[in-house]
Design a protein around this nucleic acid. Structure first.
Lengths: 148, 148
DNA sequence: TTACGTGCAAACCATTTGCAGCTTT
DNA sequence: AAAGCTGCAAATGGTTTGCACGTAA
């Protein structure tokens, strides 16, 4: 029994003539079990928690494949490190990133999405990707940093 | 006779107890003469066009100061290289980045700005900065890449 | 068998930093 | 003089790559 995601990945692998390897399956399984935005370093650590099986380079290469297969999107916050989040079955959203505690809040905005469509139409621009991140202080960190 | 921008930079320098040096003046003057989004490498090249006077590290350090003074904003497109654009007297805007020819189109969107305000209010998030870039193919590069 | 994949270490590359010597204040 | 700067070169750090060996097909 394999998940829908694993089927999608297999299909992608097969369709491009690549091979199904232990490492790729292991990295994919690990990624599917995550819920937060994971960096390659995170992935490397989790994958090799029980036994060192997969090299750093392979994690990089496999995360790229997973993104290409459509299962993940790469996002970059303010530290310049690539992170990956699930894409399948997730609504389109953006991020509020707290630069104090590192918390990441996901949000949707139909107003912004509509605005984006207008802009694309106006400039006849064919979008392939985009990123939108708002940086600042989350509710909790505001009261913390605001001294009376 | 010095420009408004130069006055602002001077004031920033003075207010923070820093020093007014030849290198800083030269880098600032060079930046003020640019119109496009310039990288540090661009700046280094232009500054030293006529005579090699300013080191790479100093250009980095000075661009950071210029950004801190409020005269520039740092933007990062899809190549991970920091670029700087003028801020003084410029309206708030975002970018359409053509991944084929590298063209950068600036746009404004009140719909998106309004959407952003709604989100900030909803999450009681205090914004300090944000970035929004849309990647894809510009009008010209679409017809180019689309073969019949 | 024959590509393709892996792991290691080395390479990359934008950016930062240590430090000796030089300038502004 | 004292406190900052500068420039060079070396360090940093995430990511990529070359290559000999391993493994899926």
């Amino acid at each position: 029994m394999r998940s829908n995601e694993e089927q999608i990945f297999d299909e992608y692998i097969r369709s491009t003539g690549l091979r199904e390897t232990e490492q790729r399956k292991r990295v994919l399984k690990t990624f599917l079990a995550t819920t937060e935005h994971v960096s390659v370093e995170d992935m490397y650590r989790i994958v090799n928690e029980k036994s060192r099986k997969v090299g750093y380079a392979t994690v990089y290469r496999t995360m790229k494949l997973i993104a290409e297969s459509g299962l993940a999107v790469e996002v970059v916050f303010n530290d310049g490190i690539a992170r990956f989040e699930h894409r399948l079955g997730r609504k389109h959203h953006h991020h509020l990133v707290c630069t104090n505690c590192g918390k990441v809040i996901e949000f949707e905005s139909t107003a912004m999405d509509r605005g984006e469509q207008e802009v694309l139409a106006k400039y006849k621009f064919r979008q392939t990707s985009h990123h939108y991140e708002i940086f600042g202080f989350c509710r909790e960190c505001q009261s913390e940093s605001r001294d009376g």
